[in-house]
């Protein structure tokens, strides 16, 4: 028994050193990336897309995959599970992510936010049947999405290059790094690893993905039909959305909006 524990410990240690490696490597990459100067300024957004041609190719590939595979799955999910059920799934997934959300709030220096996550997790787990019902949210304590990508952003790390990854979709180097760190730091993963059921964690990641894509499908369809360059439009909304998420700890008064110059009317 003891023996098994030490091996697990060793594996965990190895995982952590790998993690540290990934982490430091990404930081180096990010800082290198920031020294490049081919940035696109779009309405106050700083978008850095040095791999645009490759990204566009993968984006086109993902669109094919979406049409052939992802969207039919989402349609099926929406047909089989009605909206209240899908809300339950979303709430449950958010609830089991609480330790990560909590840690990121702390790392961002948002003590109030961390307290909120804690109360939400306790209330929703106990009263909301294991997190299926967002009782705390109903009482005015709304969910705030936190991840390590946002934490890095709060610490002043830039996005680095914009990346479109096959199947997973658009993000930035910083945010993908954050995603990897979050998933390895998740106590749920340690737990499942320790009881030799780590595959369940991949089920959870799959469920996260399905949930995210389901909530995005209408928005993306709207963006596609209302834009000329769908790729550029998605890229812009990605950065705007991440900015908005990072600002959630600010009150409405401080949250920034893009600069909008006043124009002379005789143009």
């Amino acid at each position: 028994m003891l023996n098994k524990e030490t091996t697990t410990g060793k594996i965990m240690k190895k995982k952590f050193s790998n993690l540290a490696l990934i982490f430091s490597a990404s930081f180096v990459l990010i800082s290198c990336a920031n020294t490049h100067n081919n940035k696109i300024m779009a309405g106050g957004l700083e978008i850095h897309d040095p791999l645009e041609n490759l990204n566009r190719g993968i984006f086109a590939f993902n669109e094919v995959v979406d049409d052939a595979l992802i969207n039919p799955i989402i349609e099926g999910y929406r047909t089989v599970v009605p909206e209240p059920g899908r809300r339950g799934v979303k709430n449950f997934l958010r609830n089991i992510k609480s330790p990560i959300t909590f840690a990121n709030q702390l790392l961002q220096g948002d003590i109030d936010g961390a307290g909120k996550v804690f109360v939400r997790a306790v209330v929703n787990t106990l009263v909301g049947l294991g997190g299926i019902f967002d009782v705390a949210g109903y009482e005015g304590m709304k969910y705030e999405s936190e991840d390590f990508g946002q934490t890095l952003g709060v610490w002043g790390v830039g996005h680095g290059p914009y990346l479109v990854v096959p199947f997973l979709g658009p993000s930035s180097l910083r945010d993908y790094t954050g995603y990897v760190v979050d998933s390895f730091a998740d106590p749920l993963r340690w737990y499942l690893h320790n009881i030799d059921r780590e595959e369940l964690y991949y089920v959870k990641l799959g469920a996260d993905y399905l949930d995210l894509r389901t909530s995005l499908i209408d928005v993306l369809q709207d963006l596609e039909s209302s834009s000329i360059d769908y790729y550029a439009t998605v890229r812009s909304t990605y950065y705007q959305n991440r900015d908005a998420l990072m600002q959630d700890r600010l009150s409405a008064i401080e949250a920034s909006v893009p600069a909008f110059p006043e124009y002379d009317d005789n143009f």
Partner: peptide
């Protein structure tokens, strides 16, 4: 002059689209 839905500005999005085109 602008509609911002969940933090996404319609004007900024439009501008990114046009700029890229």
């Amino acid at each position: 002059i602008d509609v911002i839905v969940e933090g996404i500005s319609m004007a900024v999005t439009q501008r990114s689209d046009f700029a890229s085109v």
